[in-house]
Amino acid sequence: MANSTTEKAKAADTPKIETQPITTMSVVVPAVAWLIPGAGHLIQKRWGRGLLLMGSICTMFALGLALQGRVYKPNGGDILDMLGFVGNIGAGGLYIVTRAMDWGQGAIAHATADYGTKYLIVAGLLNFIAVADAYHIAIGKKQ
């Protein structure tokens, strides 16, 4: 009797860890959202948000390329290059297309070209945030 009371008290003290059930959407949405910025919201019928995210992230990435920003490669050798790659890879499909087309070789020709590099990195990082948001919508944590 005493044991069961103690166990009940322990169970009440232990914080409950909420585990989300793995659904098709909770797996597909982050993958699609990463590959195509904004698409994670679009496939969940958040049209306005999805289009705004897609427009912002894609325009930022395109501006980065137009400003002659540099696209980092995975084996840069330098720790800062690796961090730059982590930022770049966040853009998903945009990064893959850019590498496939051999764009973003970054021959810096003017003072503001470094903005281009920063635009490319931040576009990827913003897409990571958009992916997390799309995932939260998919699991019902956010409307």
Binding site: R49, L52, L53, G55, S56, I57, T59, M60, L63, L67, T112, Y115, K118, Y119, V122, A123, L126, I129, A130, A132, D133
Partner: peptide, 17 residues
């Protein structure tokens, strides 16, 4: 103008997310 454009795009994403 580069900084203002940066602010526009980052603010849109921050606001939504």
């Amino acid at each position: 103008s580069a900084a203002v454009l940066f602010a526009v795009f980052a603010s849109v994403v921050f606001g939504i997310t």
